[in-house]
Amino acid sequence: NARWTTEEQLLAVQAIRKYGRDFQAISDVIGNKSVVQVKNFFVNYRRRFNIDEVLQEWEAEHGK
């Protein structure tokens, strides 16, 4: 399903906090979204969920 429920959106943001840009890991956490759908989520929801800021926090924690 290409549509993202609110629950899936929140799950994705939590997974980004945990896995950074590991699209496969994020896809696995959500369970019903492909890697391509996760990559599209990054692009389409970047502003709404401040994904750049979430990634900066992840990179700071993981030394990337």
Rank of each mutant, 00 (worst) to 15 (best):
I16R: 01
I26C: 00
I16Y: 07
K33V: 00
A25G: 06
R46P: 04
L55R: 03
V38A: 00
S27Y: 05
I51Y: 09
T6R: 14
K64I: 12
I30L: 08
W58N: 08
D52M: 03
S27D: 00
F42A: 03
N44Y: 03
N44M: 13
V13G: 04
N44E: 15
A2V: 10
I30C: 07
V43I: 15
G31T: 05
V38L: 01
Q24D: 10
R48P: 09
K39T: 03
K64D: 07
L55A: 05
K18T: 08
Y19F: 12
A60R: 10
Q37M: 05
K33C: 02
K64C: 03
R17N: 06
F41W: 08
E53T: 10
V36S: 14
R47F: 12
S34R: 02
V54C: 08
L10S: 10
E61W: 03
K39Y: 05
A2E: 15
S34P: 00
D28C: 10
V43M: 07
T6M: 15
G20D: 05
W4R: 00
N1K: 15
N44K: 11
A15N: 09
V29P: 00
W58Q: 07
I51A: 09
Q14V: 08
R48Y: 11
K64F: 09
E53W: 09
D22T: 04
E61R: 12
Q56M: 13
L11A: 10
N40W: 10
E7Y: 08
L10V: 10
G31E: 08
V38E: 01
K64W: 05
S27G: 06
K39A: 08
T5M: 00
S27C: 05
W4Y: 00
K39W: 01
L11G: 03
I26L: 02
I30A: 02
Q9L: 13
W4H: 07
L10W: 07
Q37T: 03
G20P: 01
R17D: 03
R48E: 15
L55W: 04
R46Q: 13
N50S: 14
V36R: 13
V29R: 10
E8R: 01
A2Q: 14
V43A: 13
I16A: 07
N32E: 06
S34V: 00
Q14M: 09
N32D: 03
Q9P: 06
V38S: 00
N32W: 03
K39L: 03
Q9I: 08
F41Y: 03
I16H: 02
G20W: 02
N44P: 00
T5R: 02
N44I: 15
R48M: 14
V13Q: 08
T5S: 11
K18V: 06
A2P: 11
V36C: 11
E7C: 05
Q24G: 06
Q37Y: 00
N40R: 12
K39R: 11
S34K: 02
W4A: 05
D28W: 09
F49A: 13
N44Q: 12
T5P: 05
D28M: 09
S34C: 02
F49D: 10
W4V: 00
D52P: 09
A60C: 10
L55T: 04
I26N: 00
R48F: 12
L55G: 07
K64N: 09
A15V: 03
F42T: 02
N40Y: 09
L11P: 12
I16P: 00
R47A: 14
N1A: 10
R47T: 14
R47Q: 15
N1C: 06
I26T: 01
E8T: 02
V38C: 02
L55D: 04
K64A: 15
I51P: 06
S34I: 00
N32R: 05
V38Q: 09
Q24W: 05
F42L: 07
E53K: 14
K39V: 02
F49M: 10
A15Q: 04
N32M: 02
N1Y: 12
Q9E: 09
V29E: 13
L55M: 09
G31H: 14
A60E: 14
W58C: 08
I26P: 01
R48G: 09
R21V: 10
R21F: 10
S34N: 09
E53F: 06
I26Y: 02
Q56A: 15
E61D: 04
N1Q: 15
Q14H: 11
W4C: 06
R47I: 13
V54I: 14
K18R: 12
V13D: 00
R21N: 13
G20N: 01
A12K: 03
Y19A: 02
W58V: 08
T6S: 13
A2Y: 08
D52E: 07
R21Y: 11
I30M: 06
R3V: 11
Q9T: 08
A15P: 01
E7Q: 13
K33S: 00
A2I: 15
R46N: 08
V38W: 03
E8L: 02
I51C: 03
E61F: 06
V43K: 11
Q56L: 12
